[in-house]
């Protein structure tokens, strides 16, 4: 009896220890995963809400990285409805050359020169909130962008006394954006435009607009973007329309190509938000592109 009992016991024990070892073999990785999951004191910031710092004409919630210089060249061709003689607008073009620079992760500056109305523009973009999860859970990104635009066309009537101030316009923009999924991002842009000089005394110098922009990724490197600015009718200038643009972002390494159709010819905030004259329903559609190329100037980031 006795030796049998002991053998039986040994058998039982060897069984239990065997199953025990198999359990640990499976669970080593899951033990680690649990540990990683428990380690929630890290904040993960959402990146790549948009591929570049512009949706189409206007700003996106994206900033360029710290120490990164972004050279942008944008073209808007002529009116597509001009037909074959003008090669559907391609014979004419207005352009904007611009440089953006990231001072910190959250602050960038930029300036540009547009051929349209010979305009110089400059802006600061400050990211106030960054969408994140983990320790800090923030559902949206919030940016504030004040811009200034100065037109330098010759004064229409040099015989009267003209003031330099009359060339200046300011815009203030808030952007609230959220990346809903890997592919879908949406943003809202309440905007205020102040123009020192408007054509008619009956027109308002202050204009309010509400913008909406978004992107949907089609593949890893191509997305379709759209952007619309609704101007408050009571503050809108005469014979102006709301800016609507639709286009594609194509990314190749350090370049982003944006190809789009828009009813706006201007490429600074004042001109496309408050001074768009084209009408989609009349065929006033301009084909255009933005090319962005980033250079890393300072390597400390």
């Amino acid at each position: 009896m006795k030796p049998l009992k002991i053998i039986f016991l040994f058998y039982l024990l060897s069984c239990t220890s065997k199953s025990f070892s198999q359990d640990t073999a499976v669970s080593l990785l899951s033990m680690l995963e649990k540990e990683l999951e428990a380690n929630k004191d890290m904040t993960v910031y959402t990146t790549a809400t948009f591929k570049t710092t512009r949706v189409i004409n206007g700003h996106s919630v994206e900033n360029v990285g710290k120490g990164v210089l972004d050279a942008k060249i944008s073209h808007r061709f002529g009116n597509i409805s001009e037909g074959g003689y003008e090669l559907f607008g391609l014979d004419k073009a207005t352009m904007r050359m611009g440089l953006d620079y990231g001072i910190t992760k959250n602050i960038m500056i930029g300036f540009g020169r547009s051929t349209f109305q010979k305009t110089y523009d400059g802006f600061i973009k400050v990211k106030i909130l960054s969408q994140s999860r983990g320790k800090v859970n923030m559902p949206v990104t919030l940016s504030y962008i004040p811009t200034i635009a100065i037109t330098t066309l010759k004064y229409e009537d040099p015989s009267i006394s003209n003031h330099f101030n009359s060339r200046i316009a300011y815009t203030h923009q808030l952007i609230v954006g959220r990346k809903f999924s890997d592919k879908t991002s949406l943003q809202f842009m309440p905007t205020f435009v102040h123009q020192n000089l408007v054509t008619l005394a009956s027109e308002s110098n202050n204009m309010f607009a509400f913008g909406i922009g978004g992107r949907q990724k089609l593949t890893k490197r191509i997305s379709v973007n759209a952007e619309y600015y609704y101007q408050l009718p009571s503050t809108k200038l005469n014979e102006r329309t709301n800016s609507l643009s639709v286009g594609f972002d194509i990314e190749t390494g350090g370049h982003v190509f944006q190809l789009h159709f828009t009813n706006s010819q201007g490429m600074n905030e004042r001109s496309f938000i408050s001074d768009t004259k084209g009408r989609w329903d009349m065929g006033d559609i301009y084909f255009g592109f933005n090319i962005s190329r980033v250079f890393t100037i300072s390597k400390k980031h």
Partner: peptide, 10 residues
């Protein structure tokens, strides 16, 4: 560059 890091993850 920061963009490279973004592309790595994206």
């Amino acid at each position: 560059s920061p963009l490279q890091q973004e592309h790595f993850n994206e």
